[in-house]
Every structure is written in C-alpha cells, then in structure tokens.
Design a protein around this nucleic acid. Structure first.
Lengths: 246, 246
DNA sequence: CGGGTTATTGAAGGCTATCAACCAAAGTGG
DNA sequence: CCACTTTGGTTGATAGCCTTCAATAACCCG
C-alpha cells in the first residue's frame, strides 16, 4: 500500500489553486493570497485503498483534499471500526490528532486522491503575519465538531430511511458546493461502509435503497445514484442543522 | 431565567485557581503562569436551569467551567433536541460556535454553576506572547472532536446496557480526574436527559439501571449511584478510545 | 401536605439485526 | 477467451432489542 509523494517547488501556490474559494485562501484578503504561497510545501498522492495516515502516527500536519475522496475511521482495539466520516475535496483531514499529538483515526483513500500537506509548525508561522489564517483553523475545527454532533443526533434518533436520505442529501450538497452535478453521482463507498457510518447493516442499507427507489425518490444501480425527488428526500431526512457535512 | 454576572478585579487570577492543573495554565510553564492573569476578565454565575448561551447568540468567547455542571444540546427547529454532552469543571463550552460566529447549541446549567469567560479577541492577544496557549485551544478542540467521534461509535454500535455502562464509567472518570470519589456520586441529570444523550428512551435507561443493579454491578437510588464492580462495568462498556469524555 | 415532576415496571408492537441464499460484476489465471 | 474466484449487492425469514403506550409509585418543592 504505497503512498506516493509529490514534491515540490512549482505549482504549489495556493494563489493558483482551483479550490482557493473553499480552502485556506478564503480566509485572507485577495491582496494577501500570494503571501500564502509557501504554506503548502508538498502534496501527497494517495492511491485507492491506501492510508494517508494511520492511528498512532505523529500528527504534525493537517491535510486538505485536492481531488479524490477519503473515509476516516476509528479503530477500536481488535474490534470492528467505525467510519466517522467521508470526505470530499476541500475537506480537511487530521484534525482529531491534535489532542494527543498522534492520530487516533485512520484516513483511507476511496479513489486515487491528492492532498495538500499543511505542516503545523509552518502554519503557526503564518498566523503571525496573516491573522485570518488563525481564524480559519478555528473555524474548520469548530465545523468538524458541529458535523460530529449532527451525526450523533442522526445515529441516536432517526430511522434507517431517514439516515440514508440524510446521507444522500448531505453528500449531494457536498458535490454541489464543488460545482458537480448534485442529482446524479457515483458513490465511492460500499453499502457496508455506508452502513457502518450510519449505524446500520449493509442489508438494511440495500433494503432502504430499493425502498426509496420504489417510492420514486431516486434510482439506484450499484453505486450510480440519481435523485428524482429532492424535496421529498430532504423532507424525509428531517431538519438539518446547517452543517455541510456528510 | 436570570444569569448573574460576577465581576471583576480581585481573585480572577489563573495563577491562583484551584483548577490550574487541568485548565489553561497547564499549557504554560510555571514561570509564566502569572502572565496569564488578565486572560479572564470576568466570571459568570449561572443558576440551575438557566442557559449560559443560547443558539443564535454571538459566539465571541469560550467558557471554562469552575464549578457546577452543564448540558449542551442541539435544538432542531421545533423538534426534539439532542443533548450532545454533559460537562464538569475544567470542561470548556462554546467551541462549536466558532464556525458560524453564532452558537449552534445551547448550554444549560444542571446546578448552580460558575464559568470563566475567555474572550477570544483577548485570547488571541495572549497567543502572541505565550505560544503554548495557542496549542491549548487546538488541543481542546481536537479533544472535543474525538469525544464526539467516540459518541458516534457508541450510538451507532452498542446495546443499551453497554451505552449506560460506558456513560457511567466515563462520568466516574471525569469525577476522579477532579479529585472526587469515583465510585459513589450523584447524577445531576434526569433519566430522560441520559436517554436523550445516549439515544435511548427514559424507560430503557431506567430498566438498564435496575438490570445493572440486579447483576450486582452497582446500586442506584434515584440519582445516587454507587459502583460496586468497576472492572465488570468497564468490560461491559467495551474498549475505550482513550477519551476522557462522558 | 398536595401537585407536579421524576422514576419504575409491565405488555404489545415495530424496526432493524442476524442468518442464509442467491445474484451480479470484476478480477485472475490457465 | 473462458472457467474460476472474489467481492459487492439484493432479497427473504426469523428473532431480538428497544420503543411506545399505560399505569403506578416515589420524590421534591412551594
């Protein structure tokens, strides 16, 4: 399971990044964006199925997804793990390792992906000259807390169909925020991974998919999903907490 | 539901605080502790049942609990809320409001309590002269993410008895960390609040309490709990993720 | 002491997990 | 190129856990 490192020099500027409107640069004024160049010293390619980081590793950096997608899961000493989230481009990985200094979760690429490495010592140097950057990390971490709290609510209170409907709506919203088509997409994860994440078995996920399809809310073939009745799906998912989480 | 404000001047020094070993001061060298004085400009008294902050309010500060206890819950537009956590002294409240600038949750005192108000603008000034303080916030927020992820696992995977056992063990650990007796304590919350937090109904919580009592793991009378067989309770709760959360 | 909140206990029903069989797709190797 | 294997997905029957509904009891506060 190799992870390929891609360095360095050229084309690493945040100022030239296509995701600048949703990533770190969004927190500094347009005039200052070029001053961010140098924050990212390297990028990593992570091939499908490989891990970006594993639990126990030193957590001295955070990672912003450039393309591809990831799952993060908590591994529970020799028992089954729990997938705490799926992550799309512009998402930030590795925030949960700051408490202990080592990663407590593991991030695995669901497809061939690339991330920007933000070294935290480097990062701290930038917070001095660019105060907005400090607020960015605080905001990102706060958002992660909200995302987790929303999932707590979902896992503790909603039925299986509501969980899956909500998952699809949030996933779709995440794609839309990146400029992709929100109503027709390919799921990058298996039924088992979805079920694990939502606190359901893979059989239940499968059943609910056909149930939603029978109700005319969507069509599904393997991992290809087309949302037909978005309002109904959103209504089924129940009130959102305003988190762009999935 | 009034909240009483207690200012100011005297006796607000972090350097003289009994909780200095578990609060902000723990992140700076002993020599620098006096330099923290001035970080906390005021404290708030919050009477039982009152809210420290409500959702929608501006989030320009975070709060460290001095004594008492709180619950934080997410309110889901006109539907039932979900309690995202219970908090003991040295716990920090208000971290989830940093993403939007307004609080998305509500913190309510379970008993007459007092918190230190850490103004965030003030806080940023201290991060310049005391680098360790910056790491403190990062660590605290990261820990909150881990706590939430652990709860996601619990809500998605464990049975009712495991959930309650785990809750009691974590609560007990929290008390122990503060120097209180870990095996005999008073719960500050109702069965309904416990159930809400754990994704169970109040009836189930009640039933599991008597079930655990029948099994000889503890005794319970209303809110008075005495843990009799801590190893068994811990075993039942399943493997922990190393978070001091409850 | 009385009324309202909180907690306990019971019976019935629903939702989801479990077990199991079958199917489809993708990858492997001769 | 095609058996063979593996992985992922669907569907069905049964069982178990928890919720819901309901009644009763204990406790607390004014």
């Amino acid at each position: 399971m190799p992870t390929h490192s891609v360095l360095t020099s050229e084309a690493l500027q945040c100022s030239a990044c296509a995701l600048s409107h949703v990533c770190v640069p969004s927190c500094v004024s347009p005039d200052d964006i070029t001053r961010l160049d140098g924050l990212v010293k390297r990028r990593l390619r992570v091939s499908r199925g490989s891990h970006l980081f594993a639990q126990g590793e030193i957590a001295d950096a955070i990672y912003s997804i450039r393309f591809g997608s990831f799952k993060t899961h908590l591994k529970n000493a020799s028992e089954r793990a729990h997938i705490t989230g799926f992550h799309l481009p512009s998402g930030v990985l590795g925030l949960d390792g700051q408490a202990s200094g080592t990663h407590v979760s593991e991030a695995i690429a669901l497809e061939d992906s690339e991330v920007c490495v933000i070294d935290l010592h480097e990062f701290d140097a930038f917070t001095g000259s660019l105060p907005g950057v400090r607020g960015w990390l605080r905001r990102i971490m706060s958002q992660e807390i909200r995302r987790a709290c929303q999932l707590m609510f979902i896992l503790g209170n909603l039925r299986s169909d509501q969980r899956l409907a909500g998952f699809l709506v949030r996933y779709s919203n995440g794609l839309a925020a990146l400029g992709y088509a929100p109503n027709a997409f390919v799921l990058r994860m298996t039924r088992e991974e979805i079920g694990n994440h939502l606190g359901l078995t893979l059989e239940t996920v499968s059943r609910v998919f056909t149930q939603l399809a029978d109700a005319g809310l969507l069509t599904v073939q393997q991992r290809d999903v087309v949302i037909l009745d978005r309002p109904a799906l959103t209504r089924l998912a129940g009130p959102d907490f305003g988190c762009n989480a999935y």
